[in-house]
Amino acid sequence: MRAAGVLAGLVLALLLQTTIAGMTMAGGALVNLVLVVVVFVALAYGAVAGLIAGMAGGLVQDALAGGIIGIGSLSKSVAGFLVGVLGAQFIVSQPLPRFVMFLGATAVHELCYQGLFALIEFRPFSLQYSTLAVQALINGVVGILAFQVVEGAPGLVERRRMRRASIRRRF
């Protein structure tokens, strides 16, 4: 059940990412939804789940993107694993620590990604810091919203059900 949910999340993220990038090239560069799902999984289910989600999501993303398969996957695996490990060491149940995790994971992912490309293609290492900062912020906001939705929705349904039951008892 959990694996199916993670898989559905990754597929949805890929579809949304390609759709956004298809509509506007600049918009596609400002958010990495697959990474958001990987970090979400790592925070929710731990380092191994983050590692596997990063590997699976990254491999499909790389295969669709063209070029060398494995670079994005390795970057996401590292980011997912690190977030999972840190999430087990610290209390990350509040929005602010989670937001910091999303920021950090985006930075680690981009450093790893650009570093590997520079290494493989014999290019000087270059990082667009403004784009990275914007992407990290947007990833963080999207991730926090995702947590609010996933954690808040079941409670909302339950609260509504209880309220209806109490009204029925009163009349």
Partner: peptide, 15 residues
Amino acid sequence: QIIAGNPNPGVRTVT
């Protein structure tokens, strides 16, 4: 018609 962009942010290829 362009039906999709690249899944990796910032990569300048389309489908």
